[in-house]
Design a protein around this nucleic acid. Structure first.
Lengths: 346, 346
DNA sequence: CTGTTAGCGCCTTCAG
DNA sequence: CTGAAGGCGCTAACAG
């Protein structure tokens, strides 16, 4: 009951394996009658080429890998969805590897991809894994999305976290808020660091004092942080959270504390995950077209792979910057509640 | 600049490829000195076995595939997350293949997995793909999660949709609601069909008339459906949606229509996706431990794979039933708002 | 304990 | 246009 091999097909079709291969790969010319005989045999045996064997001789796998730290939350889900769409559009399989807490684990994951993928997209908040990615993967095309600026000179995509954070704070200040507090992301996370830096910078520019509470990107931590902030002597009149999930947690904490949002405290998040427009008040945030970014990343990887097979291709070493866009919703005092699903310009 | 092969390592370590293989696979006995020499060479060349080649000779890939219709929404994200956890716990890679609109596409996806995976988890709402899964994959271990009862006799997991729907409706009726409307899922979806059947059955039992509006599992469709319902002459006093996303859409529609929830209209969803407890009013729903279900499914697949290699193993042909549990929250008139993140028993 | 040698299933020159 | 043969990188007997 074993799966049929190319030889079985050849035998049944009374041709050589070479001809079968030609028919199946579309390479080389085959006479119509033989082609039909082969197809018939393929059909009858419900033969499917063994991709492992094929990749061994072609040194292509038609598969790309995605290394990411976590599979939690909507951000990564959305990102993967975008990548998946682009991958399938290019006839590629997607293999994901997540939950890499530290650089060495991520490195191991990268290594284990060898022979399994034609290229890699690496999202690793671990600072030096940029090097690891490059070194360990041999000459494998790699697109970096580490959220660090150290990716320069290597194909990569980064989010303008500082610019986004500045925009968030300036918007709050323009609304007349002055005591803007920040809920930060996990220690060691480059993106979180940049968002905080942007916050500090914007507040300093305006001559306001800063107030930061640590979080870890989870909704629970946002809840705790906001609760702490509401217990302060001088209560902030706005909260800028380093990501949406924490902002949502904060929103709920405010509600529980009987603090009105946006009247008493305005809230701004970061990412614009799908849930941001579903909570009430709907969350003002910095939109990253997450799925679109994933799609774009995959497209670039595909291009990288293509050019790695083409000797005379100019190597892509661009570090593309994603600029988040401020989306004002109720949590910031927007009058219009926004419809639930399609009332916004995409 | 090509990646090192086992021969390069053997050469550098002054041993045969067999010894290198032994060291790396851990099989067979190797003298310590040789082992060290090999390790040194591996290190120096930063050698990593080529998984394609390995799988060709071992006929194992250490990879499992997941076929699913869609990557949209929290349900599948959560499910995949659970599977990923279990997969990595078993040292397996995960390859996902989504967006299969019809049975033939799903079948193609399954076929393209040959030689790429050791086993498959198939979630396909297309009725007859159960057969396809079995036929096309050769003797590949497959775990079905088609949401259909036709999976009996084959390793599978299904959700007790009817039981869940009945529980939902009975709860609403016990609250004194009598005009319970239903927002159904997409036509042709087995699970949606069962949930509707459960609704109809429970209403009939209680001697109430039924009222069904079609949806397609998206939030937008729930929004539309609820809007339609609110425009009816005799407005329902409760809505049971076939999944959470539609329930959330309905919640927002009610809000926009100025209808109070739960006072005027109670709402119940299905699935308990993470967002269910974040919306306000928090959504009453039928909880499926989604990630846990994914984990469980993967564990079963792993067992299937193991027993498929063991000639004298009793084949697992169980059809496991997941029984959703009613979780009462605000949208149904629960007094306690529930804390945002950990106030519930998990 | 270690080296030699077949394949695993497929693609791809290279002759015919 | 088609068939024969080598090799992709690795593992697994089988001899030494």
């Amino acid at each position: 009951m074993k799966a049929a091999t190319i030889r079985d097909v050849a035998e049944r079709a009374q041709v050589s394996v070479a001809s079968v291969s030609r028919v199946l790969t579309g390479a080389g010319i085959v006479a119509e009658p033989t082609r039909l005989r082969v197809m018939e045999a393929v059909e009858a045996l419900s033969y499917v080429p063994h991709s492992g064997a094929r990749s061994l001789s072609t040194s292509r796998t038609d598969t790309v890998g995605v290394i990411l730290p976590d599979l939690f939350g909507e951000f990564f889900s959305e990102l993967i969805r975008g990548m998946d769409v682009a991958a399938r559009a290019n006839g590629l399989h997607l293999i994901v590897s997540s939950s890499h807490d530290d650089a060495s684990e991520a490195a191991a994951a990268i290594r284990s991809m060898r022979g399994r993928v034609d290229g890699l997209i690496v999202l690793s908040p671990h600072l030096d894994s940029a090097n690891l990615a490059a070194n360990l993967a041999g000459r494998l095309p790699v697109l970096l999305m580490n959220g660090g600026a150290n990716d320069a000179g290597r194909p990569s995509m980064i989010v303008d976290n500082i610019g986004g954070a500045v925009a968030a704070v300036e918007h709050l200040l323009s609304l007349g808020r002055t005591r803007v507090a920040h809920i930060g992301g996990p220690a060691g996370n480059q993106e979180a660091r940049e968002r905080e830096a942007g916050y500090v910078q914007a507040m300093a520019n305006a001559g306001h004092a800063t107030q930061v509470v640590a979080g870890d990107f989870t909704q629970a931590s946002g809840h705790v942080a906001a609760t702490v902030l509401m217990a302060e002597g001088v209560r902030p009149d706005a909260i800028f959270a380093a990501n949406d999930m924490m902002a949502v947690g904060a929103l709920l904490a405010l509600q529980e504390a009987g603090v009105r949002c946006p009247e008493d405290v305005a809230v701004v998040g970061f990412d614009d995950v799908p849930i941001a427009q579903l909570v009430r008040p709907a969350l003002t945030t910095l939109r990253i077209e997450i799925a679109e970014t994933g799609r774009r990343a995959m497209d670039r990887l595909v291009a990288l792979i293509a050019s790695s097979n083409d000797p005379e291709a100019t190597p892509d070493t661009a570090c593309e910057t994603i600029r988040p866009r401020l989306v004002v919703r109720q949590s910031c005092g927007d009058i219009n509640p926004g419809t639930a699903f399609n009332g916004e310009t995409q």
